[in-house]
Design a protein around this nucleic acid. Sequence first.
DNA 1: AGGTGATGTGCAAGCGTATGCAATCACCGC
DNA 2: GCGGTGATTGCATACGCTTGCACATCACCT
Lengths: 344, 344
Amino acid sequence: MSGKKVTSLDVARAAGVSQSAVSRVFTKGASVSEAMEKRVREAAERLGYRPNVLARSLITGRSRIVGLVVAYLDNPFFADAVEKLSHALQAEGYHLLIFTVGNSGADLDGVVSELMDYQVDALIAASVDLSGALVARCASAGLPVVLFNRGIDKSGMSAVTSDNRAGGRRVAEFLLAGGHERIAHISGWQGSSTGRDRREGFEAGLRAAGAAPLEVIDGRYSRAEAAEAARAMMDRPDPPDAIFVGNDYMALAVMDVLRFDLGLSVPGDVSVVGFDDIAMSAWPAYDLTTLRQPVRRMIAATVEEVLARIDTPSRRPSRIEIEGPLVVRGSARLPRSGSGGESE
Amino acid sequence: MSGKKVTSLDVARAAGVSQSAVSRVFTKGASVSEAMEKRVREAAERLGYRPNVLARSLITGRSRIVGLVVAYLDNPFFADAVEKLSHALQAEGYHLLIFTVGNSGADLDGVVSELMDYQVDALIAASVDLSGALVARCASAGLPVVLFNRGIDKSGMSAVTSDNRAGGRRVAEFLLAGGHERIAHISGWQGSSTGRDRREGFEAGLRAAGAAPLEVIDGRYSRAEAAEAARAMMDRPDPPDAIFVGNDYMALAVMDVLRFDLGLSVPGDVSVVGFDDIAMSAWPAYDLTTLRQPVRRMIAATVEEVLARIDTPSRRPSRIEIEGPLVVRGSARLPRSGSGGESE
DNA sequence: AGGTGATGTGCAAGCGTATGCAATCACCGC
DNA sequence: GCGGTGATTGCATACGCTTGCACATCACCT
């Protein structure tokens, strides 16, 4: 109906005040009288005025846009995380501009450039490993970077993860307590800190009991590769009696292979334990024992860190680890005594 | 390292040319000599200059941002769609600003306002029903709206869906051909066009054979409600021998209830057919027969429509329906003869 | 030689908003 | 009644960029 965009100047004219007055009414802590406020708001309402965020960004230097780089959106863990992240940021008046990147991460460089072109206030990388060069670029541009579900120690960016080492260790203890003797591991991608930490914690846990993994194969966060790894393991003369899988997404594929391809019983023949506790793990068709990543708290921490870094650019990046419980379900043989599992 | 933002003016000075020259080098079809191009690019490279998209948007009136409103991100169908959508738009130089909205859709009004504040070039609503008032708002602001997986006929927005009526009908025919006699339906939310169309097509299909659904319950796209509906149906004195579920996400919940809660066999005791063909439906634990929505083509059509509407604001919104095949797997009893199923 | 395009460049005017500064004003204590 | 104080307001500028316009240049043609 109405012609085109209505600007603060239009409102000013309609209300018989200056453009700056209009601006002040719509800017948080500015000083405006009640009368002015009322007049302007009425005129604005009548004309259907809303401030242009882009123009505002140009001058304030803040866009209220947070860039999100994400790779594995097919893994429900991340879909869930993205949804919660979006919600949380939205509540704070920020919004997510999303950039998907092939799992290769090859074009990551270009993606980060594009991100910066949009003058995003911060960058969240969900399960994506940024190269040192990229981090430097962001740092020199004063762009706060927060890693979600990835952690790199030596760099200048914040990172939020669960305590992956402790988690891996906990799984090892649980499987040992269950009396398993040939415990294998299909790991998360060993190029990722998350994948490595879980493996190391797991191996440390076994070692503490004088044990060692029967075999470790890198599943690279792929269902297909995890399935292949499972087949290879079960093809051994001494197949494992328990497999710890680097995340639930792969663990479900492993269970499918064991049960439907190989006709084995889980946990009768082989125990399976995952990591993440995605929604599907609780479904009765899988009923997967897994180490939960407390997504809610991880997201809260991420958002908090992002906002803090935006408000205080000088703030030092911090490394946040959140512990999650082992969720004991039916996919792994239980320890005899009560020792070893806490239900939630 | 370097201080702060480097602007086109900095580059201009460094290259000894005017600021407009720099701008022209970075603006697609502008006229620049080779020599100029080279000089400017070198200076830009050296200083690490990249155009500020926001400032550009302010003057061109185009942000190259597309707003995405999405509700059910826990349903893998949408997670998948979002990923593909993001990829496709990214390839065209656009990016997604995402807005999640509670399934209630109560705050939809506010969300659309925020969207418009960011001067998005277009709005894609994935499985969200926009009220007439909202559509009017967008139309009067000259904002193209494209519905994904929702279609409303009477309105001024484009819509891309699969052929839900034909799909529903196809399912009915398949179940009838399979010799089922008491066919029930747990529908998608009847407040959504998609849910209604599938139900109507399904009922029409039954009717054409002189049959009628045993019972229809609205599952409202919720796993919990679908599960409850399944229990209620099976509690009848004459329980169904087949259930058509309004989408895969609910269908998996229904299968869980039938098999693990009620100890029934699928398809031995009850056949189950879904709609969407999400990745999990192909997993052996479910092996769900379902009507595939061709996501790839739907996304391609959506992107095409979005770009066309952006380029040609006067263009009339169009309604696009894409047919998908029935994917016959193991969750429903097969017809005797070969008639009735095409494998993919 | 003068005209006629075509081509490349700089100038300057914005795009819609925030904000420092100075001006105005009401009000207060003395 | 006066200087002072604090709260409001308008003016003008700046944010980083695109683009219409005028102008300069140069090749080419009649």
